[in-house]
Design a protein around this nucleic acid. Structure first.
Lengths: 342, 342
DNA sequence: CTGTTAGCGCGTTCAT
DNA sequence: ATGAACGCGCTAACAG
């Protein structure tokens, strides 16, 4: 295979100027149909492929979206990415995925790359410090935050009703007859962690139950953290009789911990998780979960980004999607002292 | 924030030439320490960030690796990507992830993008047609195939001992006392599907059991396919008493099918799967699986790519990593007519 | 060791 | 409707 053909090679072969080839390639203005045909023919013959790098340099922008997610091992994010991709395709953009792994250093590096490569836009689940997103905004790179809120930062965002979902989850445990309900939530810097904790608190308050610090754990939103937090709750002098776990991977860790210690669900301990994993239905007992519209979150984020690219002056907007409580076996206590039927 | 500073802005401020700034930025040759200091100072003051697009154009290459995987919903691939990333970082490359979704059209599009953006190299789990990889090779873009073989294509590759792993898996079922063993494998165009099927055949032959076409299904390596294939096997006049399922997602689908129909593992049906999912240990009964060194596969692929970039004339090499049989409960038949203890 | 010059491939004026 | 000329920001030659 010969070296890559340039626009000049095509122009020469079609006996037109490079400008005309450029116009044909980009479908610009009106070019004589006969010339169009000649140019297309020459392009085919030379297997011409426009050099995107040169084009990007000239245009000062690319047709690439960076999607920076915080945990590629979490099905929540991979499903979300699918939603982004599907919309991006139809809008003429390509998606490049970056896994920050909840590591601020990696996040910083990927934002460097997005800036240096002049990415057209960025969809990000922020690690928690708004400074990183400000770097993007400062360079006039459109940004959409997903999953997590960035307080005080004027940026498009797509979220779910975290507090409300958590409240319903906790209220459901109360209804099922549990009375000493613990909570395993995420890092304090993440809005998903604090909002879900807030919902948990609100539900307790509404039920007239006390909020006890010793029943709350801040873990890392990962499996190992969920395992440890659960273990630590079980070691309490007076352990909880149920837990609300604020994300999917930690719930898996918590379940693993219960299995390891022989604690039976839902009788000895009830559980509700926020978000699930694709194969949750195979785990016994099946988990009661707050279901998120994950794929739709991705689509909504992509639409927001496309809209902003089309009109950069648009004021930032936040889209909040609803969650849904899906009741499984993990919160169905057999013998309940509660007057309200489960 | 002002518009992005260019190398000339820095040069002007530091009272040197643009070439000197370039040398400082790239750590090239020896520059007078005093000038280096002035340049660095100016860069800081102007918040200078090199324009990667311009650099790429000049150098005719980028420092980006495209990793094109065939199913972002499969933990196998996401774990593999982690391995790639970790090596890429240390080699000074950034990874952009592309999800072809086992769709030749998407794969084609991503290869277009990799070519157009002049990516430094590509790591790909090929959809099965060598033509796509040839496009890359033809443009002198270094390529490493992972997971799947590309017969007749001279390309670096990282694989596992598929046939051997499948053979051991099947032999294990025979040992456990199963006598009518079915197989759910993947699409015929993928080497992983055919190699694992071969291992299954070999094991049957070694055990003196007949190979029966009606016990073999070619599905799509996804959950739905596994479900359907399992359902179809169960509908046989004389259904199998065990199955070897050739990938993780299809195994999940198969298990789901068994649950739906009330078929009990391992007594009514034994199962061994090739590859697992991170949460397999929570599924009851636990699955017997052929474990792959997934993360290592990614690391090996990245090292191969880095090596080739360092020395493009190196002949293509294939790295084959070993698998390991991890025995779970799904293949432990209670009452066996077999003389060999399980 | 440093500066000057040229051009990577393309899109975009401005003429015609 | 078409083409000539310029420059996006950077780095590789070459001079000095």
């Amino acid at each position: 295979m010969a070296a890559l053909a340039t626009i000049y090679d095509v122009a020469q072969r079609a006996k037109v100027s490079a400008a005309t080839v450029s116009r044909v390639v980009n479908g610009r203005s009106s070019v004589d149909p006969a010339l169009v045909a000649r140019v297309r023919e020459a392009m085919r013959e030379l297997d011409y492929r426009p050099n995107a790098v040169a084009r990007n340099l000239r245009r000062n922008r690319t047709s690439l979206w960076a999607v920076i997610i915080s945990d590629i091992g979490n099905p929540f994010f991979t499903t979300l990415v699918r939603g982004v991709e599907d919309v991006a395709q139809t809008s003429g953009y390509s998606v490049v995925l970056c896994n920050s792994d909840e590591d601020p250093v990696k996040e910083h590096r990927y934002i460097d790359a997005a800036l240096a490569e002049q990415m057209a836009g960025v969809i990000i689940s922020p690690s928690g410090r708004p400074a990183e997103v400000h770097r993007l905004l400062g360079s006039r790179t459109p940004v959409v935050a997903v999953d997590r809120e960035l307080a005080g930062t004027p940026v498009d965002a797509v979220l779910v009703d975290n507090a409300h979902g958590a409240e319903r989850a906790t209220a459901h445990l109360v209804q099922a007859g549990y009375r000493r309900i613990g909570c395993v939530t995420g890092p304090r810097r993440l809005s998903t962690a604090t909002e879900r904790l807030r919902g948990y608190r609100d539900a307790l308050a509404a039920a007239g139950l006390p909020y006890e610090e010793e029943l709350v754990r801040h873990a890392d939103f990962r499996e190992a953290g969920g395992y440890q937090a659960m273990a630590s709750l079980l070691e309490l002098a007076c352990p909880p009789d149920a837990v609300f776990v604020a994300n999917n991977l930690m719930a898996i860790g918590a379940v693993r911990c219960l299995v390891a210690r022989g604690v039976r669900m839902p009788d000895e301990l009830g559980m509700v998780a926020f978000d699930d994993i694709p194969w949750a239905s195979l785990v016994r007992p099946t988990l009661t979960t707050v279901v998120q519209p994950t794929y739709e979150l991705g689509r909504a984020a992509a639409r927001l980004l496309a809209d902003r690219l089309a009109d950069p002056s648009r004021p930032p907007s936040t889209v909040t999607l609803p969650t849904e409580l899906r009741v499984g076996e993990s919160s169905a206590r057999a013998a309940t002292a509660d007057p309200v039927p489960g």
